[in-house]
């Protein structure tokens, strides 16, 4: 039994890109390789038996030709292929500019080996000796999450055109949020440690909490703001149609819709705070990071190793708990 053939015009083939365009791309590739040869300042050589070739330009050339061949084989449009070439070119340029190589990893292995040995022999007792610092770290994370997420929610509401009182307010608050977000956590850490005096002056925890709060506001305002942008507008229209005010609409129609996302981001921010407080401690804000900083200055790697292991366990526990809660609420 055979099904009758369907009368239809021939199916189109995926069009082959123009050969002339690829000739142009080939020229661009050759130009790129010449640029590699000319701009490379590295003296690293690749020994292939018969000759020694400059390492970086050869790697770049291989990458360029491989990408071009792949694109031709997959019938990729010339514009996409040009994009791929550009990616290779920029990556090569960046890597050779800073002399990127993995060689020190094995060449200097002997020097690193004693440190690794110490790391492999953590002093377990040390974990318990600094338990008060762990409590401080957790307390900092809790306080910062609470305050940071509350302020972040307010700023997100003001920033999103959906829930904001007016367009100028929305744009102004968006700009403020961008500025807050553009400074990294360690930047805030250095700032507040300088202002308040850090661990040495007994204000490390306060500086750390303030830094974490700013860090949290940035993240929460961004993520929650985007969630507000994408809520179902139907209930908002319904609230408007009953004659409710903006505040009532935000509370009744917007907040219930963003609550799962917002709670999930808040838990995520709490996880981030545990991790971030390590780095903040090193610049002088309190918590477990300051302990690491002290041990590092004493070259006490087995103590640091113990803290690192404990940190991994704490972060895993917090991750797991918050994941479980997040699953429940979404």
């Amino acid at each position: 039994m055979s099904t009758p053939a369907i009368e239809a015009p021939a199916r189109p083939q995926k069009p082959r890109p123009a050969a002339s365009a690829y000739a142009g791309l080939l020229a661009a590739a050759v130009g790129l390789i010449l640029f590699f040869l000319w701009s490379s300042t590295s003296t690293l050589q690749l020994d292939i038996g018969v000759a020694r070739l400059p390492l970086y330009p050869i790697l770049g050339a291989l990458g360029v030709f491989a990408v071009l061949a792949l694109c031709w084989r997959a019938r990729t449009g010339p514009l996409t292929a040009l994009g791929a070439l550009a990616v290779i070119g920029v990556t090569w340029w960046g890597g050779s500019g800073i002399g990127f190589t993995l060689a020190p990893l094995w060449e200097d292995f002997d020097r690193g080996w004693p440190i690794i040995q110490e790391f492999l022999d953590p002093s377990w007792g040390f974990i318990w000796r600094v338990w008060d610092q762990w409590v401080v770290t957790l307390a900092m994370a809790v306080v910062a999450t609470g305050i940071g997420c509350s302020v972040g929610l307010l700023l997100a509401m003001l920033a999103s055109p959906v829930s904001s009182p007016s367009k100028p307010v929305s744009q102004a608050v968006k700009a403020i949020n961008s500025v807050i977000r553009s400074i990294p956590d360690i930047g805030y850490g250095l700032l507040f440690v300088a202002m308040l005096g850090g661990t040495a002056a007994g204000a490390g925890e306060m500086a750390g909490i303030l830094a974490l709060i700013m860090f949290n506001i940035g993240i929460i305002a961004k993520l929650t703001g985007e969630t507000i942008d994408s809520v179902d507008k139907g209930p908002l229209e319904a609230a408007d149609a009953t004659g409710s005010t903006l505040l009532q609409r935000d509370r009744i129609a917007v907040l219930p819709q963003i609550l799962p996302g917002y709670s999930s981001y808040s838990l995520y921010v709490f996880e981030l705070n545990i991790r971030a407080s390590v780095v903040l401690g090193i610049v002088g804000a309190g918590g477990i990071g300051s302990t690491i900083s002290v041990q590092l200055s004493h070259f006490n790697y087995s103590n640091i190793s113990a803290i690192m292991i404990a940190l991994v366990i704490v972060v895993l526990i917090v991750d797991y708990v918050s994941l479980t809660i997040r699953r429940r609420i979404t």
Binding site: G234, P235, E237, A238, A241, T242, I252, A253, P256, Q257, L259, P260
Partner: peptide, 13 residues
């Protein structure tokens, strides 16, 4: 009062 095609209820409350 107004009634809509897509009901426009807040479904989570």
């Amino acid at each position: 009062g107004m009634i809509f095609q897509s009901f426009n209820l807040v479904t989570r409350i």
